[in-house]
Design a protein around this nucleic acid. Structure first.
Lengths: 255, 255
DNA sequence: CAACATTATGCAGGGTTTTGCATGAATCTG
DNA sequence: CAGATTCATGCAAAACCCTGCATAATGTTG
């Protein structure tokens, strides 16, 4: 016979809530062989601890977790799902991915199918944590943390990247334009992107339409070095790039 | 029938706890044919030794430390502010800090005074992000990401750690005990802690009282390698360590 | 062996936590 | 609006914990 005390019951209930399950007081009362009042008190305690959202008849998972990552991910909600979806399709079953930092690539992780032998290599602590939460094997590149992009940069990181061989590098962009190619605001991040390109067989740039036609401070990659650009820009913006010979996948927001 | 003395009973009970079983005082009392009071005293002893988590009606295994870091953080475990404060004081104005991963060290960042030439070196993406948000210069050690600890581990990470020189290494603990020293549940994490100790002039271990008297799977550092232990444990737990010659700072929760 | 110290155990009391129930208010449903 | 369900509150019983004390078992010393 198990211990049937508030602590254990509440622990079990909290776990269920974390898994996204609802709690029906009457059912749980029967399950634990206690009165509904007792379960009600348990739920009351869980609510006081911020672990449950009390509703009539039981409890629901609390909607907003406090983890800093989720805050950021929530902020990344502005990333177009279609952009993410198109990128996932392009990635396919590639087993070794090099993922750039940035809100766009971060949004990818949530939807990335979990393959058995898939490895994500990234200079971004954000991506690293997101991968962990999804139980994806991760290799984190080290180096000095660059404030603008929130990713590890510097010679150290670049040199180490050279030692790996990835199937696909997925890069974000600060700017991309027909003549100037892919450009970045931070020099160190530009270096990092170059290294990631060099270490991968295939380079994909995914970016929202606002970056097209823009030139950021530091030239990073020429268009001919980019295998594919995925964007949601208007056709008049993508045309000059497509004419330069680079493949472009354009997604349309539902309208 | 075996001897029915405290030693043997407690040994049996400890084993059951190690197997993840709960202990119900009344049942065990019947089983050993002693009064409930005696079993209560046994559990009391086990708790003092850090081998049991005493609850109403019996005892439970000490909190299973194998759940990944992001789960533990989401569970809302709280770090004692006094513990953080004491550690901050010990760190003082040290300019290069080597910070272990873990919930305790993560809580440090929030309160860490921002010095001009301070640099935080860490294998933990969590810490890296927290530092970045507080505008603290950060160097991230790269490597394979370990799920349980939420930090970079492995040959690459150890190698990079060897290449740095820090003033103070602040380590967390899975277990710390007078004879066995500092121990970890994960071998790769144990390696990282050893490397961090080697790379710093001074090694501080900060841990809550629950870890004292506990032996985790892998021996990591001997007590003599640790310059200071900061904890909130009861004196009967810290005494054996202090007698072994290691400095111990004990903080008191409001009581 | 005797006397003493130490440890282990059971028991009684008083206090705290937990639980189930009763009552009336609040909320949902048709 | 009537009926049913659920909730809040207070209360008393039960279970459990803590403390101190007496007793028995065991070990130690002279």
């Amino acid at each position: 016979m198990n211990l049937n005390i508030p602590d254990t019951r509440q622990h079990v209930l909290a776990q269920r809530l974390d898994d996204g399950l609802q709690i029906v007081a009457i059912e749980v009362a029967e399950e634990f062989d206690v009165s509904v009042d007792t379960i009600r008190r348990d739920i009351l305690a869980l609510e006081a601890a911020g672990k449950a959202h009390r509703v009539r008849g039981g409890a629901m998972p609390v909607t907003c977790p406090t983890s800093p990552l989720h805050v950021r991910l929530a902020a990344g909600g502005t990333i177009k799902p279609a952009l993410v979806q198109a990128t996932i399709e392009q990635i396919g079953a590639a087993s070794t991915l090099l993922l750039d930092g940035g809100a766009t690539t971060l949004a990818l992780i949530d939807k990335l199918p979990r393959l058995d032998r898939r490895l994500v290599i990234t200079p971004s602590p954000w991506i690293a944590i997101a991968c962990q939460e999804r139980d994806i094997d991760t290799f984190m590149l080290g180096g000095r943390l660059s404030a603008p992009g929130g990713m590890a940069v510097g010679d150290v990181a670049v040199g180490k990247t050279m030692g790996v061989a990835a199937d696909i590098a997925v890069l974000g962009a600060c700017g991309i334009e027909a003549e100037f190619g892919l450009s970045s605001d931070d020099f160190a991040e530009a270096q990092m992107k170059q290294a990631m390109h060099a270490a991968a067989r295939r380079t994909i740039v995914v970016t929202d339409g606002a970056k097209l036609g823009r030139r950021a401070r530091h030239h990073t990659l020429g268009l001919q070095q980019i295998d594919l650009i995925i964007t949601d820009a208007e056709q008049n913006l993508t045309d000059p790039i497509a004419r330069a010979g680079t493949n472009v996948v354009t997604v349309w927001s539902h309208n």
